[in-house]
Computed example of a mutant assay.
Amino acid sequence: MRATACALLRHEVRLHMSLWLWVARRRHGTDGGQAFGYARGQGATMFAFAFVCVVETLAMFVLLRDWPIVHWVVLVLDVYTIEFVIGLHAASVVRPHVLNSRSLRVRYAAHVDLDIPLEEIATVRRELRTTHRRAEGELDLAIGSQTTVTLKLTEPVAHFTFLGRRRDIRLVRFHADDADTLVRSLRAVMRERTAPPPPPVRPA
C-alpha cells in the first residue's frame, strides 16, 4: 500500500513538473542528445477529451448548485480530471525520446523512462503496427494505438512498471512522430560505435 502511494505521488509530481515545462516551452532530459517527439498523434484526441471534461464540469456546476457539499466535491474532482488529462499530454510533449552517443532513452509521458545502452541494441527497424498483444519480454508503448519503431535487444533490459514490478525486456516497440529519422540516426550512431579505429599514422 505504501509503495502504491509513493508511486502515485511520484507520478503526480512528474505531471505537475511537465505542466510547468510545457508552459515554459522547455523539455526534460534532452541536454546533449537528439530529441524525437511522439505526442503529435494524440494531441487532438487529448484536447477533445479535455473539452468534454470542461463541458461536464460546467454542467455539474449548474446541476449541483443546490447541494453545496456535493457541488464542491464534484467540482474539485472535475477540475483535477481536466488538469490530469492536460498533464498527460504535457508530459508526452516535454519528455521525448532522446538519442545520444551512449544510449537511446525511450519514454512515454510520465509513466515510462527506459534507458537502453546502444551496445545492447541488436537491430532497429521501422515497423508500423496497429495491434499489440501483451507478451513476456516485450514492451509496447503505443500512441494512438500504433507503434512505428521496433528494437530487438541482445540482452534483457530491466523495466519497472508504474507500481514498481520488474520486467525483463528483450523487445521494445514505440512510436515516434518522425520514425524514419530516428531509425536512420540510431543506425548511424551504432555504426560509428562499431567502426574500426583508423590506422595509426606512420612517421615520415
Rank of each mutant, 00 (worst) to 15 (best):
V54S: 01
V70L: 11
V52W: 00
H71S: 07
W67R: 08
V62H: 04
G43M: 12
I69V: 14
L75A: 05
D31R: 09
R26W: 11
G41K: 00
P68R: 05
F61R: 05
V62I: 04
G33A: 07
A50V: 09
A50L: 07
M60Y: 00
G33I: 10
G37I: 07
L64Y: 09
R40D: 14
A24D: 15
C53D: 07
W72Y: 15
V52K: 04
L58R: 00
V73L: 13
L58A: 07
Q42C: 13
L75R: 08
G41S: 10
M60F: 00
F49L: 14
A59V: 13
R65W: 12
Q34V: 15
F61N: 02
L75W: 13
A44G: 04
G33W: 07
G29M: 07
V54N: 02
V76R: 01
V52N: 06
F36Y: 15
D66C: 00
F47A: 08
G43S: 12
G41Q: 00
A48T: 14
A59S: 06
G43I: 10
V55L: 11
L75V: 01
A50Q: 06
G29K: 08
F51Y: 09
A59D: 00
D31Y: 07
L58V: 12
L77F: 12
V52Q: 06
G41R: 00
V79R: 01
F47K: 11
Y38H: 13
A59T: 08
G41P: 03
F51G: 08
D66V: 03
D31E: 13
V54A: 06
R25Q: 14
F36R: 09
F51K: 06
D31W: 06
A50C: 12
V62N: 01
G32A: 08
D31S: 12
V70Y: 04
E56V: 03
G32W: 10
M46Y: 09
Y38A: 05
C53F: 09
W67Q: 08
L75Y: 06
T57C: 03
V73W: 06
R26N: 11
F49S: 04
F51A: 14
M60C: 04
M60N: 03
D31T: 13
L64K: 00
C53K: 06
Q42K: 12
Y38L: 05
F49P: 02
G37W: 11
R26L: 12
R40S: 14
L63W: 02
F51H: 10
F36M: 10
A35H: 10
L58E: 02
A39P: 05
V54I: 11
P68G: 06
V70R: 03
A35V: 11
I69S: 00
R26G: 13
T57D: 02
V52S: 06
G29P: 05
L75F: 10
D66L: 04
R40Y: 15
A24N: 13
R27M: 15
